[in-house]
C-alpha cells in the first residue's frame, strides 16, 4: 500500500539566494518499506524530511509547489497533531530531542504519552515494554544528561517509538556516535522494520545502508537523481557522479570489473562480494 506520494515537489526557503532547496521531486513510500536517502550535504535531504513530517509548510514559510500526499490527504490539509501521531521524527543530535524537563530516562520516555493524556497505568506499561524492547533497562532510572551519546540516542528513539507512529523519519542518527553506538541504532531500526514500521532514513554510512535498506533515493542539488531497489542503486557507478558514495564492496567490484569485464555482478555487501569473487575466481582458475 502506498503511504506517501510526492508529486513534483519544489520548495524555496524564505531567506536565500532564490535557489530552490527541492526541485521537482517525485517519490513513493510503500507501507513497511525501509527507504534510505543519500547524497552530499546541502543536497536537500533534511528539507525533504521536513516536508514529509509537515514542518514544511506548517512551521517553515517559503514557497511549496506540488503535492505530498500522506494516506490520501495532502500535507497542507493534515493537522499537525494528527500528523505527529502518524509520523515520528528522530533528530541527528539527541540533545535536540531530549526534553530537559524530566529527571529519569523512564519519565523522559513517558513524556509524549503524558502530553496526550493517556492513562497512567497504560503509560507505565507502554514505557516498560519499549524499555525492554530496546534493552535499556539499566538506563531507566538515570538522568538523561548523564548518558553517553549512544545511550542518549537510544533514549531518543525510545521516546519516539513509544508513541507508536506508523512512519519513522530518522535524520542522520549515527553521525555523532562511535561504531558500537552506531551498531546499536541499526539494531533498533531493524527491530522497527520487523514490526512493520515504515522507515525513512538519512544516513552517510553507506555500508550499513547496504546491509539493511530496501530502497535508496539519491539526492543531488535538490533533486532525486536516482532511486529504486537498494541493490540496483548501489551497484550503479553513476551514483559516484553525484558524490553520494557507494559501499566499499561495490567500489571494489567496479575496480575488478575495470580490469576484467567478465566480473559482471557488482556486489553491495560483504557476503555478496565473497560469493561473487569466489565464483569468478573459480571460473578464471585463479587458484
Amino acid at each position: 500500500m502506498v503511504l506517501i506520494q510526492a508529486r513534483n515537489i519544489t520548495y524555496k526557503y524564505p531567506i536565500n539566494d532564490g535557489q530552490s532547496a527541492l526541485k521537482n521531486v517525485n517519490f513513493t513510500i510503500e507501507e513497511g518499506g525501509f527507504y534510505a536517502i543519500i547524497g552530499k550535504s546541502a543536497a536537500g535531504k533534511t528539507t525533504l524530511c521536513n516536508v514529509i513530517r509537515g514542518f514544511i509548510p506548517h512551521f517553515h514559510r517559503g514557497d511549496l509547489q506540488g503535492e505530498l500526499i500522506v494516506e490520501g490527504k495532502d500535507i497542507r490539509e493534515w493537522e499537525m497533531d494528527e500528523l505527529a501521531k502518524k509520523i515520528g521524527f528522530i533528530f541527528q543530535n539527541p540533545f535536540t530531542q531530549i526534553s530537559g524537563v524530566k529527571d529519569t530516562v523512564f519519565d523522559e520516555i513517558a513524556y509524549g504519552l503524558e502530553n496526550l493524556g493517556v492513562e497512567v497505568s497504560e503509560i507505565k506499561a507502554r514505557v516498560k515494554q519499549i524499555i525492554n524492547l530496546l534493552g535499556i533497562e539499566h538506563l531507566q532510572d538515570k538522568n538523561p544528561y548523564e548518558l553517553s551519546g549512544g545511550q542518549k540516542q537510544r533514549v531518543a528513539f525510545a521516546a519516539v517509538i513509544v508513541m507508536d507512529p506508523d512512519i519513522l523519519v530518522i535524520d542522520e542518527p549515527t553521525s555523532q556516535l562511535d561504531p558500537k553506538g552506531t551498531k546499536d541504532i541499526f539494531e533498533i531500526i531493524k527491530l522497527l522494520k520487523e514490526r512493520g514500521k515504515t522507515i525513512i532514513l538519512v544516513e552517510h554510512k553507506i555500508e550499513l545502508i547496504a546491509e539493511n535498506a530496501d530502497y535508496v533515493y539519491v539526492m543531488h542539488e535538490g533533486e532525486i537523481v536516482h532511486g529504486g531497489k537498494m541493490e540496483h542503486v548501489f551497484s550503479d557507478p553513476k551514483v559516484l557522479e553525484y558524490e553520494a558514495g557507494l559501499p566499499q564492496y561495490a567500489l571494489l567490484g567496479i575496480e575488478v570489473q575495470k580490469r576484467n569485464p567478465s566480473f559482471s555482478r557488482i556486489p553491495i555487501n560483504k557476503s555478496q562480494a565473497e560469493k561473487e569473487l569466489k565464483k569468478w575466481m573459480e571460473k578464471q582458475e585463479v587458484y
Binding site: 564492496y249 567500489l251 571494489l252 562480494a273 565473497e274 569473487l277 585463479v286
Partner: peptide
C-alpha cells in the same frame, strides 16, 4: 571493510585498500 573481506577469503596478504585487493587478486 576491505581487510575484513580479504581475511574472510583467507588471502595471504595484509590487505587494507581496494587497490591492494585488486592487485592481489
Amino acid at each position: 571493510y576491505i581487510s575484513e573481506l580479504a581475511n574472510s577469503m583467507s588471502f595471504e596478504s595484509k590487505i587494507l585498500t581496494i587497490d591492494e585487493f585488486v592487485n592481489y587478486l
